Amino acid sequence: MPVSCPAIIAELRESLKKVESDGLRRRPVLPFGIAPIDERLAPGGLRLDSLHEISAASPAPSDDAAATLFMAGIAARAWGPVLWVVRRRDLFAPGLYQAGLAPGRLIYAEAGDDAELLALMEEGLRHRGLGAVVGEVKRAAMPNTRRLQLAAEGGKTIALLMKRHAREGGNPLAVPSAAMTRWRIASAPSAPLPVGDAGVGRARWQVELVRQRGGESADWMMEACDETGRLALPARLVDRTAGAGRALSRAA
C-alpha cells in the first residue's frame, strides 16, 4: 500500500527533530578550493543559501555516476548532516563514502514521485539544521525550482538537485530554472599510470558550468573527488601552472 506524501513528510520531521543546528556562524559560500573554478564563480564558490542543479552529460551509467559523485563531494564538504531524497534505491553507499560522504552523516528519504521528492527537499531546507539537501528528479518546472530556491534563502543549507535524463532523451537542463548555478558532468578517460604500474589512475570528469547568475559559463577537466570530497587539477595542468609561475619569477 503506497504511503501518502503527508505521512512521509511527518516521518521526515520526526527524523529532523533529532538534528540540531551547531549554532555557529557559517560562511555564506562553499568554495571548491581550486582557483580556476572559484575565480569563475561570482561569489567565489557555491552559495550555501541557494539551489544548484546538476545533470549527467548523457544517460550513460558512467556519466550518471560521475554526476552523482560530484554532488556527493559537494555535500561531503558541507558542515553537517545531509538529507538525500531518492526515487529509486540505487545509491551505492561505498561510492559515496569514497567521495567523502560518510554513512553516519546521511539521512535517506524515499519519494514515490517527483512531486513528493520536491516537497521533501523543501521540508529539509526549511529545517535549517542540515548541511545539504540532495534530490534526484526527472522533471522540475520553474515554479518547483523557485520554491526550492526560496526555501534555501536565509539559511546555510545548500540545495543540490540532480536532473536525470528522461527515457525519451533530450537535455535535462533545457527547462528554465531558478537555480543559482547549473552543472553538466561527464566521465573522461583516466590518466595512465607510469609504465610498470598496474591499473588506471584517478578518475577524471569533464565539469561544465552551464549557467550561473551574475557570471559566465566555463568548463574544466578535473580529477574526480577524493576521500575528502575534493576535486583536483590533473597533474599535467598543475605542472604547467607551476612552470609558468617559475618562469614569471625568473622574468621578475
Rank of each mutant, 00 (worst) to 15 (best):
V175F: 14
D226F: 02
P43Y: 11
A179S: 02
Q206S: 13
P43W: 14
P59Y: 04
T157P: 04
R105N: 01
L117P: 08
L69D: 06
R204D: 03
A78G: 09
G215R: 14
S190A: 15
G33M: 09
E168N: 12
P194A: 01
S177G: 08
A65S: 08
P176Q: 06
R202W: 01
A186S: 14
D90S: 00
A67D: 04
E20Y: 12
W220S: 04
P6Y: 10
R230S: 10
P31A: 11
E223G: 01
Q212A: 07
T145W: 00
E110V: 13
R230A: 13
I34F: 00
G154A: 06
G100D: 10
D64S: 12
M222N: 00
P176M: 04
G170A: 00
A7C: 05
G112H: 00
F70H: 07
D49A: 09
L12D: 04
A119D: 03
V207Y: 11
A166M: 09
V195A: 15
C225Q: 15
V210C: 11
W79Y: 13
I74P: 02
D90Y: 04
S177K: 11
E223V: 03
D64T: 13
Y97S: 12
A218H: 13
L231K: 10
A251E: 12
L160Y: 05
A159I: 08
W205M: 03
S177M: 07
R13K: 13
R213A: 10
H165S: 04
A35G: 04
E227P: 07
L24P: 00
E208R: 15
R204L: 01
T157L: 06
A152C: 12
D63L: 11
R13P: 03
R139I: 08
L130F: 07
M162H: 10
G196W: 04
A75N: 08
G199P: 01
A72H: 04
A232R: 14
E216D: 12
N144F: 02
P43A: 12
K156V: 12
R47Y: 10
T145S: 13
P103H: 02
L120G: 04
T68A: 14
R182E: 05
F70P: 01
A151H: 05
